[in-house]
């Protein structure tokens, strides 16, 4: 697979998530535990170690190992550090393509592209917003609409349910 890499700012977003989670945990420890007791020190150092490992090793590796590609036949997404996962959704069965953003995605100008088929979903996460919209256009282009048109009858039935 000649994969495309997700934008570098996705890594910054993950780092921000890590900081936020670490800050929330520290807040809880400071609120509920007596400072400088053995449990307090153990938890602070455990979470600190976990944060450093995630921020300095796990997320950079995850970023470097994440790639996606879209061909005439399939949409592919590959990711993972300890467990690598490669997901392939065949385009002949593609029904719905949806672009969505979380509030933090919005700050970093990122979007995710969710492609659904009858029984399978692949999410291309943390794409640049422009790229996500371009891919959405490409995937729902007229020449590829045949399966979507076929499913329109089903969707009509489904919607009226």
């Amino acid at each position: 697979m000649k994969g495309r890499r997700i934008p570098f700012r996705a890594l910054w977003l993950w780092e921000l998530y890590a900081v936020l989670v670490y800050a929330a945990l520290l807040f809880l420890i400071y609120t509920f535990l007596v400072p400088f007791t053995w449990l307090w020190i153990l938890l602070v150092s455990l979470f600190g170690g976990g944060y450093l490992l995630a921020a300095l090793v796990y997320f950079p590796l995850l970023y470097l190992g994440t790639q996606y590609s879209i061909s005439e036949e399939a949409i592919e997404f590959e990711s993972g550090v300890l467990y690598r996962r490669k997901t392939v959704l065949f385009r002949k069965n593609l029904i719905v393509v949806c672009v969505y953003q979380t509030p933090l995605d919005f700050l970093f100008r990122l979007s995710s592209l969710r492609c659904s088929g009858p029984g399978g979903v692949v999410t291309l996460g943390y794409l640049a917003k422009k790229e996500a919209l371009r891919l959405k256009g490409e995937l729902t282009a007229k020449k590829r609409l045949r399966p979507v048109a076929e499913m329109a009858v089903r969707n009509e039935t489904n919607a009226s349910h």
Partner: peptide, 16 residues
């Protein structure tokens, strides 16, 4: 073949 919608490959470090 036409009823296969999605394929996923999963590898642990050892399987890799």
């Amino acid at each position: 073949e036409e009823k296969v919608v999605q394929v996923k490959l999963r590898q642990s470090i050892w399987q890799g």
